[in-house]
Amino acid sequence: MEPVQYSYEDFARLPSFVVGLMGYDMLGVPKTRSRRILMRLYRFLCLASHSVCVGFMIFRMVEANTIDNVSLIMRYATLVTYIINSDTKYATALQRRAIQSLNSKLADLYPKTTLDRLYHQVNDHYWSKSFVYLVTVYIGSSSMVVVGPFITSLISYFTNRGFTYMHCYPYFEFDPQKHSVWIYVGIYGLEWLHSTQMVISNIGADTWLLYFQVQIIIHFRGIIHALEDYQPSVDHDEKDRKFLARIVDKQVVLVKLQNELNEIFGGSLLLSLLTTASVLCTVAVYTLIQGATLEGFTYVFFIGTSVAQVYLVCYYGQQVLDLSAQVAHAVYNHDFHNASIAYKKYLLIIIIRAQQPVELNAMGYLPISLDTFKQLMSVTYRVITMLRQMIQ
């Protein structure tokens, strides 16, 4: 018995859930009035806290006298680049009409029947457990960056040294001798919501990008399988040509959908690659300076998940690049020898179109592929080495 084949809505649950963690409803799913009000209030709190924290960060940087050591400089450099990265991705997520339009077009194209879904092997493209674990670990490790100072303070309290009132970000100054404990609670609440806004914006936008890219990949695989399995013949030439006409039309549609995807996410992809490399460099150097502390370990996890996040985007970019090119190979490999001349001319159209592979790109300048990932990691490693030598 075949397992139940996933629907289009099943694929959308994970990205919708992730962005929902910051109170943002990407697809405008109907909700009860009370739940809608609560989500809007929560989203407002996240955005307001984020704005307050960014304002304080800018104030501290202008003030400058509190940034008095290399460790803090690295910390602020990390925060600035991560905020730019996250806010860019949040701005991308705000293109809700464009995203909903692309989502609707891909939903119409999605295989409707169980047999069709089996043929397209949709279950093989569904979110893997490893991907879900990655998203969970990314959010968890990012949360630990905020929770870590509180845990350290608790450990200090139980080892009879007193509660140290540590918190995550260096924007706020808290003196337990002068300030009320409620101010500490308020600072922690601001930092938590600020972190939530940044982390979910970062991973949420990429999850939606991968969601759409996977859908396009499913259809390219479907085209390849259809061409490889089809047996044309002069005896049913009209049927054969209609089959190829559908393939050509679908190929054109997929190219248009990929272009729409690039228009929505291209800007954030370009800036994301640059800022992610910067974040990795500064976080790595900061971790080396801090040494073997709880904060250091949480940052190590954060670095690992951030690298995996970039790798996945580049991996799926490579997939669509390869599969769109493989369409030409599928045409060549399928049994067209008994087909009519007209059918073979149709094949040439498909081959010519496949000579320009469909690609995920950053604003048309930078194709996103595994080669991009390799270059990014190479540059990042060299910069980390240089910064470490400069500090030493």
Rank of each mutant, 00 (worst) to 15 (best):
I384P: 03
Y82N: 08
R97H: 10
V313E: 06
A91F: 11
I368L: 14
Y90P: 00
L134I: 10
I183H: 05
T276D: 12
Q177N: 14
T32P: 06
A98T: 08
I83R: 01
V279S: 06
W192H: 07
H179K: 04
Q389P: 03
G140S: 15
I368Y: 05
D87M: 13
I83Y: 02
L288V: 09
T207A: 13
R75C: 00
V147G: 01
K129Q: 09
M39D: 15
A205T: 06
S142Q: 09
D240L: 03
Q5P: 00
S195M: 13
N259L: 06
T152I: 11
G55P: 02
V70F: 00
G222Y: 04
S71Q: 03
L102Q: 04
M377D: 03
N361Q: 10
M390D: 12
L41C: 12
Y24L: 14
G222W: 09
E263D: 14
Y138V: 04
L190G: 11
D322E: 12
L14M: 12
L118G: 07
V234Q: 11
Y138L: 08
V379D: 09
G148I: 02
I350C: 01
T275F: 09
E260Y: 04
L312E: 06
G55E: 11
F11V: 00
N333M: 14
M22H: 05
Q197L: 11
D235R: 14
L347H: 05
R221P: 02
T276G: 06
D235Y: 14
S153A: 05
S16C: 08
S272T: 09
M39R: 08
S141E: 12
I247S: 02
T114K: 00
H50M: 13
S324I: 03
S268A: 13
M22E: 09
A226C: 09
T88L: 12
M390A: 15
R382A: 15
L270Y: 12
L348P: 02
L45Q: 03
P176R: 06
